[in-house]
Design a protein around this nucleic acid. Structure first.
Lengths: 177, 177
DNA sequence: CCATCCATGTAATTCGTTACATGATTAT
DNA sequence: ATAATCATGTAACGAATTACATGGATGG
């Protein structure tokens, strides 16, 4: 569902055609999420149907058909409501980044609390990994096979650690004062 | 398609029932990939149909129906072929981890080259991010909105850096000598 | 004039998720 | 007894991927 919210944020920043969104999918969101043009056209059509967007048919002098999508108040409200609703699964990082982006354009909406709780969950997962590391891969020489298995676990540890590092940097930016 | 390969690796390590695979999905693969039991049963059935797996009907004394899946030579070959075929998209990290796991059980299969090329691609992407950082977010005080936008970019930078750090640690483990 | 880019879409297939359903075994 | 766990599946739906298709505008 949150591809729609990603598109709403992009369109709030700048009304665009589907094609433009497909190419950049916003310079920021594209850093961690790419969507195909079919996905984007589908979701734009759905949001237009729901009354979240207005499609301005703008052949601007020329005859090339292009629709510039603008966010309507209903879309804006839907986005704000979504940002305010915490998602607390470990897989909600993508959504969180979109929420940050939304806070950048819409002002403080309470993402701080969600981030705080996500940090706790990632810490817990890191601890689980660390325990497996201690139990299975420390204190004795490892075979080639074991070193490779360890490398897979390491990828999880490194991912969690760097995410936590990032999240703790971001937290003070969200402080509402 | 590579959920099948993930299952093949798990089953090579230990023949199991679908239920068992669904719960652990291998202690290692589950760190970065979770699959539902429906997905797993579906893929197991498909692979059995293709002749990659043999389903040993083993009610082991009791009457509870359970199928223990074993990898057949055709499945093993298919896995080896997949591991040997480089995927060079930036989104192929999941697959790469499964390939590492496969190398752990099957011996050197040339994943080193694939990793080397992936490192180059991630380095290139990191450079792109670094350039945006320099151009848009350095050398002047930032507004709250800009700091949040920067945080989103930072998440990409941190992710790439930590991945590269991990990958460079893994590379020597794959050296075939 | 021809290639590339801009721009939008339909259709088919596959994949992932959720709900529903069944039944045996084990632990309390 | 009965609740939890083991174990396997079907069905429906929605999402994502890929292929196919069209046509105007722009640049060389």
């Amino acid at each position: 569902m949150s591809i729609q919210h990603a598109l709403l944020v992009s369109l709030l920043e700048r009304p665009s055609t589907g094609y433009e969104l497909a190419n950049r999918f916003d310079r920021s969101i594209g850093y961690f999420w790419q969507a195909t043009h079919q996905q984007i056209y589908r979701e734009l059509a759905r949001m237009a149907k729901k009354g979240w967007l207005r499609a301005e048919d703008a052949p601007e002098g020329g005859k090339r058909r292009r629709k510039i999508y603008h966010v309507l108040p209903a879309g804006r409200s839907a986005l704000i409501e979504w940002v305010k609703t915490p998602e607390l699964s470990l897989e909600s990082t993508r959504g969180l980044l979109i929420k940050l982006r939304a806070e950048a354009t819409l002002g403080p909406l309470g993402v701080e609390d969600e981030l705080r709780e996500l940090i706790e969950q990632h810490e817990a997962r890191l601890h689980v990994y660390r325990n497996i590391e201690r139990r299975d891969f420390s204190g004795r020489p490892l075979t080639r096979a074991q070193r490779l298995q360890y490398a897979v676990l390491r990828s999880g540890i490194v991912r969690e650690e760097s995410w936590l590092h990032w999240a703790r940097e971001v937290l003070p930016l969200l402080a509402t004062d």
